[in-house]
Design a binder for these strands. Structure first.
Length: 815
RNA sequence: GCCCGGGUGGACAAAUGGCAAAGUCAGGCGGCCUUAAAAGCCGUUGCCCUUCGGGGCUUGCGGGUUCGAAUCCCGCCCCGGGUACCA
């Protein structure tokens, strides 16, 4: 008798070879068939070191979805690539001298190895890294399109500067005043930089969230980030200097309560207004101090309010009052107009400032009590006869209408979203394809000269300007417009530009004539199911949406929303903490798949808990899943060797019926868990139940029934443990499971002629009886009353109500 | 502060108005296999009471709606995430 031992490595390499040799997961653009398409995509990995357990989870989720869609009749595009530019590789290079290209490509090789070892079903013909010239050539092309469409521009602005990484950052990359990557405190710097006009798309980005199937909390995060506020722009005039200062306010109903006016320290007119006044020197000192202060210290709302009067006034357009003007750091230049009207009676911050500086505080909205500041709704008071007594909501509209008529203001919308700063003073990124010519100014590199190749450097150390500036031969170039001497742009692009369009390139990855063929992109896009971590809820997902919308408006594309459905998977933690090398609590997926096989590793990360939730890794738990796959494989292999092939009986009875019912129950359960819900944990649990039932029934049922039940388990487990599933299925049936359609349950076998009826008295379960499934309500009531333990509890008492849930339960209410 | 999640046996969890605890792990108890051990396998195991028939209790806390609540509503506590002088 041969020994039946589950040897995952033998099985896994065998099937991996088959898939590799046959190109099983390739979906060539030439070979179109009549299946509907499905584009299943996991966020591309950033290749740094070896893949970690989070990667295993992402790609296990994505692969399960890809396999499920394939077997449901879809032609599935499931590609892979690498987000290969970026700071960590460059910092590593500075430390070790190893060129970023080398360390990155080494890491890419490790990812490739792991993806193959895990058996992820990838169409490898579409693979690329964003650092390859054949890719970034088209990143540059997109930049030029945006430039041509006036969606890319250069502007000198106060920008966030990371002193550690020696580069500017996008607003989105500043977290709590610190650099998202390295944690250093961010400084403000005045620099001329490239921006992308994402704010032009604020409304579209907001509005189109309605139509996509994304988790609600991700949509909320994007909405908050865009931060649309409705209100009014109101003009306050400085009579002495004859300058109009518009402010944005969400509360034009409180205009009559304005008692002072504040400018941000960065406001360009601060020094002009203070000039010659008694506080000029003080103002100058205050502004310098404010500019030097860290974003974090300045942003603390607990900090006492500070400021300096400018010695000027502006006129409130609604009542002609002269309001003193202050400079104060609680007003931000980045939002609105950098100036505010201050209404201390109805705003917490203005109230705190007014108290500190002894400024008048006036109530113009009646609240439920006498307390100020009051920020809620109410009736207008102390304003003007035309508005007093109105609800503030109504007053708001009328006051704005009045301002509009008088030419002193208008309804307006303000956004928190800022334009996307894409310049980076770093080496390992996509060069920005423009040159500077003394005669012609900023000149785009002509498309036929792309790519602007990243030169090879040996010294990447940041010195406050891009390391590329040191490559003088490269920097010096010819102006494409006039042929004169010119200099290349030495900044590179934010890597989020690279990853804002990679999903388009997968559609037509080998096209050397264009970024994509529009007809091919139309065939695959949008991504039907996108999978990734929630940490990209704002940055990547917002940028990618913006790029698609912009290119679509320029007729280069026809994709308003790139990702129809999004699934955000949770983190894998160890002992409740995020895994990190410094904490020493990492789990190496390669080690797990070496010890137990890839199927066990994949199945376990999915089984451990709902995939959208954070889950805690436990080494003991892995053993359990390994045991389950071993049991399945062993039973399948024994039955294949020992029992003659046979079909399940046409008219099953007894234990055969029990096992067949269990199999169809599992088919039904797994199918429902995978549709929309991605409840892989309960789907795997259902297959475990089926396998357990197979063991219980193995000596009592016919060969055909047992074969069918085990083959069903193999078929159902295939999306999670593809090698084991394929192997068991092959042994039992000689067929390739991935070529089989996803099974459907037989409705006859999902139902039974008797059901268990739960009998309750006053809502408490007193008995359970088997009753015919066809019993009527009246019969169920009678059967319930007759159940022995029910009778004991009725005990002659009066039944005042009977509730029947057909096929499940009867509740008798007694007094 | 505001906006989202979440809180169920020793652990991960299942159940989204109808049998609370499916499945997995860990520990306990009993058994099979073995000369023996390891491994493996099977059964059993939430807590309390019991005259062994059964009875009572249990989903963060307090109230409510309902014949019936882990699930819906109100108030509170705790944990996690996002966000914040955004006018």
């Amino acid at each position: 008798m041969t020994e039946h031992r589950y040897e995952p490595h033998r099985i896994e390499s065998r099937w991996q070879r088959v898939w590799d040799d046959e190109g099983t997961w390739e979906v060539p653009n030439e070979g179109v068939d009549d299946r509907p398409k499905a584009y299943v995509l996991e966020m591309l990995p950033y290749p740094s070191g070896e893949p970690h357990i989070g990667h295993l989870k992402t790609y296990s989720v994505g692969d399960a979805i890809a396999h499920f869609r394939r077997r449901n009749g879809f032609r599935v595009l499931h590609p892979m690539g690498y987000d290969a530019f970026g700071l960590p590789a460059e910092n590593h290079a500075i430390k070790t001298g190893e060129h970023p290209r080398e360390s990155t490509e080494k890491s890419i090789a490790a990812f490739q190895r792991q993806f193959r070892q895990w058996g992820i079903s990838i169409d490898w013909t579409r693979e690329f890294g964003t650092h390859e010239p054949r890719y970034y050539r088209w990143t540059q092309w997109i930049f030029l399109r945006l430039l041509a469409g006036d969606l890319a521009y250069r502007k000198e602005a106060a920008v966030k500067w990371c002193p550690n990484d020696a580069t500017v950052l996008a607003n989105e990359q500043v977290v709590d005043g610190r650099c998202e990557r390295c944690g250093a405190e961010v400084e403000a710097r005045q620099l001329e930089q490239w921006f992308l006009r994402i704010t032009d798309y604020a409304d579209a980005l907001l509005h189109d969230l309605e139509g996509i199937d994304w988790p609600e909390h991700v949509k909320t995060m994007q909405r908050n980030w865009i931060g649309r506020s409705e209100g009014a722009e109101v003009i306050f005039r400085c009579e002495e200097l004859g300058i109009d200062y518009p402010v944005f306010t969400t509360r034009p109903d409180t205009l009559f309560g304005a008692t002072f006016f504040v400018l941000a320290p960065e406001h360009p007119d601060v020094l002009k207004l203070a000039a010659g006044g008694e506080h000029e020197a003080e103002v100058r000192a205050y502004v310098n101090h404010a500019l030097a202060e860290t974003t974090e210290a300045r942003g603390d709302p607990e900090k006492p309010k500070t400021g300096v009067p400018l010695g000027r006034t502006v006129t409130n357009p609604v009542n002609g009052e002269r309001l003193p003007v202050y400079v104060a750091d609680y007003v931000l230049m980045e939002y609105g107009t950098g100036a505010i009207m201050a209404v201390p009676g109805h705003d917490e911050r203005d109230y705190a400032f007014a108290r500190t500086f002894g400024l008048p505080i006036r109530r113009v909205i009646q609240g439920p009590d006498d307390r100020l500041p009051y920020t809620g709704d109410g009736l207008l008071v102390n304003s003007a006869p035309a508005f007093d007594g109105l609800s503030n909501r109504q007053a708001m509209e009328r006051i704005v209408a009045w301002l509009d008529r008088e030419g002193r203001g208008h309804a307006s919308v303000s956004y928190r979203l800022r334009d996307w700063l894409v310049s980076r003073q770093r080496y390992w990124g996509c060069p920005i394809p423009v040159v500077y010519c003394a005669r012609c100014g900023v000149v785009p590199v002509p498309e036929d000269q792309l790519p602007v190749r990243l030169p090879d450097l040996r010294d990447y150390a940041p010195r406050g300007q891009s390391p590329l500036a040191a490559a003088q031969d490269w920097v010096r170039t010819e102006c494409p417009a006039c042929g004169g001497e010119a200099r290349r742009e030495t900044d590179t692009m934010d890597t989020f530009v690279d990853s804002s369009w990679y999903f388009l390139r997968y559609c037509d990855a080998r096209n050397d004539e264009a970024a994509w063929d529009p007809a091919i992109v139309r065939r695959w896009m949008p991504v039907d199911q996108y999978i990734g971590g929630v940490e990209h809820a704002i940055l990547h997902l917002l940028y990618a949406r913006f790029v698609c919308k912009a290119l679509t408006d320029m007729a280069a594309l026809d994709v308003r929303e790139p990702f129809s459905a999004l699934f955000t998977q949770g983190m894998v933690t160890k002992q409740g903490a995020k895994m990190s090398k410094s904490k020493g609590n990492t789990v190496d997926p390669a080690e797990i798949s070496e010890r137990y096989g890839a199927d066990t590793a994949r199945c376990y990360v999915l089984f451990i808990g709902p995939p959208d939730q954070d889950v805690d890794w436990s080494d003991d738990g892995v053993e359990g899943v390994h045991r389950f796959l071993s049991r399945l494989w062993r039973l399948g292999s024994e039955v294949a060797d020992q029992a003659a092939p046979a079909d399940p009986p046409d008219d099953p009875a007894g234990d055969d019926l029990v096992l067949l019912r269990k199999a169809h129950w599992a088919i039904d359960k797994v199918g429902r868990d995978m549709t929309g819900r991605f409840a892989f944990n309960t789907a795997i649990a259902a297959v475990m139940e089926l396998v357990n039932e197979c063991y219980r029934q193995r000596d009592r049922v016919g060969d055909g029934t047992l074969r069918f039940a085990i083959a069903t388990a193999a078929s159902l487990v295939f999306p999670f443990a593809p090698h084991c599933g394929a192997d068991v299925y092959d042994r039992l049936t000689g067929e390739r499971v991935w070529e089989q359609p996803w099974p459907y349950p037989d409705p006859v076998l999902l139902e039974s002629d008797t059901v268990e009826l739960v009998c309750q008295v006053n809502g408490k379960v007193r008995d359970r009886i088997r009753v015919p499934a066809s019993a009527t309500e009246a019969e169920l009531k009678a059967l319930c009353r007759d159940a022995p333990r029910v009778r004991a509890h009725l005990d002659g008492r009066e039944v005042v109500k009977e509730v029947v849930v057909p096929g499940r339960l009867v509740n008798l209410v007694v007094r």
